[in-house]
């Protein structure tokens, strides 16, 4: 199950994306500054509350499973030493806390992803990054969201076609080459058509910016985020 935006009307859904982004930065800073058992207990409560307020739960973390091997192996790697005492529990413990910290930051990030539509994210970019850079980044990011499923489908089709013709027996670098070549060609074909379509629709450097509403609740979140940053730095 992929973590993605889910239409809903939770507290998190009603927040301005900019305050949600700043909150993530503040939370991560605090997590790095207070990677102690006590600090992590408090931060766990915060992370669980935030994810809950976005309508998510432990299942939202499933998409991060690929990080798990790193998180589980790291304490062993840290604890292992060549020579006496062969395993240092203090080092392993320190790294265990660091591994756990990762999960908390990911949980808060999952809350953002679950509660923020692409349109809001694009608006946040174009209202934060000034000038042409903001236009390029805003439109570019929106296009990544839009075309990811199409290109994923293109690649899957290519792979199936290769497998159907017995390509599974080819060396891995040859299979990589075949899949990548097909993917790049499809991407360029689509991009050239898309570029013309953008021009036809008067793609401009100075568009009307997408709407965003910064409410009272956002003020609170903003204050908390700044507070977390201050606490982390001081």
């Amino acid at each position: 199950m992929t973590l993605s935006y889910v239409p809903d009307d939770t507290l998190a859904h009603r927040l301005d994306p900019r305050s949600k982004l700043l909150f993530q930065v503040g939370f991560a800073a605090a997590a790095y500054a207070y990677t102690t058992p006590r600090g992590l207990v408090v931060l766990t409560a915060v992370a669980a509350a935030v994810l809950g307020l976005a309508g998510g739960g432990p299942r939202s973390l499933w998409s991060y499973r690929f990080a798990l091997p790193f998180l589980l192996v790291a304490p062993l790697v840290a604890g292992a030493t060549l020579g006496d005492p062969w395993f240092r529990t203090d080092r392993a413990f320190e790294t265990s806390l660091a591994s756990y910290r990762v999960l908390l930051v990911l949980a808060v990030a999952a809350a953002y992803v679950r509660s923020t539509p692409v349109r809001d994210s694009r608006a946040a970019i174009q209202r934060t990054v000034p000038g042409r850079a903001g236009v390029v980044l805003g439109v570019g990011v929106a296009l990544v969201f839009r075309f990811l499923p199409l290109l994923t489908h293109d690649l899957r089709t290519t792979r199936e076609a290769i497998a159907a013709r017995g390509g599974d027996r080819l060396p891995v670098h040859v299979r990589m080459r075949l899949v990548a070549t097909a993917g790049i060609n499809r991407a360029f074909e689509r991009a050239d058509r898309l570029g013309v379509a953008l021009s036809a629709r008067c793609f401009a450097w100075n568009p009307t910016l997408p709407p965003l509403a910064f409410g009272r609740l956002d003020g609170v979140v903003l204050a908390v985020s700044v507070g977390l940053l201050v606490v982390a730095v001081v």
Binding site: V118, V139, A142, R146, E189, R190, A197, A200, P207
Partner: peptide
């Protein structure tokens, strides 16, 4: 202008955001 294969000319994730793309570029009020 509408081109062959609309998949490669729609720019946004939702219908409303896509249709708004042109008028936004014209700098019209919301």
């Amino acid at each position: 202008m509408v081109f062959q294969d609309p998949r490669d000319q729609l720019v946004a994730a939702t219908i409303g955001a896509d249709v708004a793309f042109g008028p936004e570029n014209l700098g019209l009020p919301r």
